[in-house]
Amino acid sequence: MSAYILRRLLAAIPVMAIVAVLVFLMLRLTPSDPAAIIAGDFANDQQIAEIRSKLGLDQPILTQFLIWIGNMFQGDFGESFFYKKQVAQLIVERVEPTISLSLLAIVLTVSIAVPLGTLAAYKQGSWIDRFVMGFSVIGFSVPVFVVGYLLIYLLAVKLDWFPVQGYQYLSDGFAGWLHRLILPSLTLSIVFVALIARMTRTSVLEVLHEDYIRTARAKGQSELKVLVRHALANAAVPILTVIGLTFATLIGGVVVTESVYTLPGLGLLTVDAVLARDYPTIQAVILLFSLAYVLVNLLVDVAYTLFDPRIRY
């Protein structure tokens, strides 16, 4: 079993390496010159050249890449063009809202979507199934920011139940933290409830056609136990896989949600960095989010071993 985990871990390394190369190339082969951006509109060629050499931009591309990678392993993500401070420090300052939002959204999503999807599969063709299917199509068709503004308009502006925007750090009190996060995480989870409920339905439906479900019924097992003990236990792996894969979509949603609710997290940082053409920050954030995505899927792979005894090597 540990060999399996080790193998998954080792398989993640080349993926991350390719991501690093892609991110590096993407932002280094741009038509715009970072040095010119830093220097500002009124700089002369001499000043730009100085900045270029200070940033190492006059080195061969391979050298630049190796320096960049080497620095990152030492926790040095470079200095933000825009904020004029270390990107690493910037990320540390901005990480709490993002993690809070994502975790709350995932918890909300899983606790709603899995029971809903299971029920829909079991009652295939019934009104509840149609409701889940209808809701899921609408759920992933309405963009996150439209949902966000609708909720703000109804629950914050009209009813005044929640604050419109902003974030409160957890260290300033749990209640305030939660109160300000409810709307954003609800906004974010709607898409994922739609996606995961639907995938749960599909997985459970597929499992319900398996022979061992028929076996359980032939033993005289009750329908509830057939559903939980046999169907859901076997559908766990595909459901987990989907949760892992939708994590990528979740990150996209986080960027938008933070922007709508002006939560000072990494998503908002990304958007601001793009607007300011702050390349070191863009690189670092994309890399970090990709690493998070790969790690989450690694965790999912490891979690498989808890649910499926066949995965042992």
Partner: peptide, 14 residues
């Protein structure tokens, strides 16, 4: 492995 929207954001920025 790069979330789609982030990749798109990165690409439009260049």
């Amino acid at each position: 492995a790069i979330p789609a929207i982030l990749l798109a954001i990165g690409l439009v920025s260049v």
